[in-house]
Simulated assay, not measured.
Amino acid sequence: MTPYLRRRGHEVGIGTVDRLMGEQGLSGVVRGGKHRTTIAGKGGGHRRAPDLLDRDFTAVEPNRKWVTDFTYVPTWSGFVYVAFVIDCFSRMIVGWQAATIKDTAMVTTALKMALWRRDHAGHTIEEGLIHHSDAG
């Protein structure tokens, strides 16, 4: 509302407009809507994996615990989704992937990159690595 009033020649402050609109029970237009990155499967037949980390995101050596998540960044032409894999020992991003669609391939590509990069850096992945995501 403030830009609208200013374009019409009124000298108004944003705080004043917010206060007056609030007193009248009005709110301005909010562009866009809430954007969800995780949508549960239909039918309730999907079970999440157990949380093997029990919220302990520390590690005594590299390649023992990795955490994964993905988020989105709004851009002028739409959303860009970014998945990343972090080693809990060093807090280093060991794998990532960006895409304009959120799908399983985006997340698995980030994991494949992490496995490839760690192996080629001389940090061989051994049995016992825990890969954790906020979905279980």
Rank of each mutant, 00 (worst) to 15 (best):
R19G: 06
G95H: 02
H123E: 12
S27L: 15
L52D: 05
M106L: 15
L53V: 11
A121C: 13
R6K: 14
H46K: 07
T75S: 04
V80Y: 15
T124V: 09
R19A: 13
G33C: 09
T37I: 15
G43S: 09
S90I: 01
T100C: 03
T2Y: 00
V85T: 02
R55F: 12
T124G: 07
A83C: 10
K102V: 11
G15D: 08
R36E: 14
K65Y: 09
A98M: 14
E61Y: 09
A49E: 11
R48V: 07
V85G: 00
M1T: 07
R118M: 10
D134H: 11
S133K: 04
T38D: 04
M92G: 06
V80H: 12
R117F: 03
R31I: 08
G9N: 04
T58K: 07
K112I: 02
W116C: 11
R55K: 15
A59M: 04
P74K: 05
V67Y: 00
G122H: 09
D119S: 12
H35K: 12
W116K: 11
F57L: 07
R36L: 08
D69Q: 01
R118T: 11
E61I: 05
V94F: 06
V17G: 01
R47E: 07
G43F: 03
A98F: 15
T16F: 01
Q97M: 13
T100Q: 13
R31V: 10
R31D: 04
M92I: 02
D54Y: 12
R6M: 11
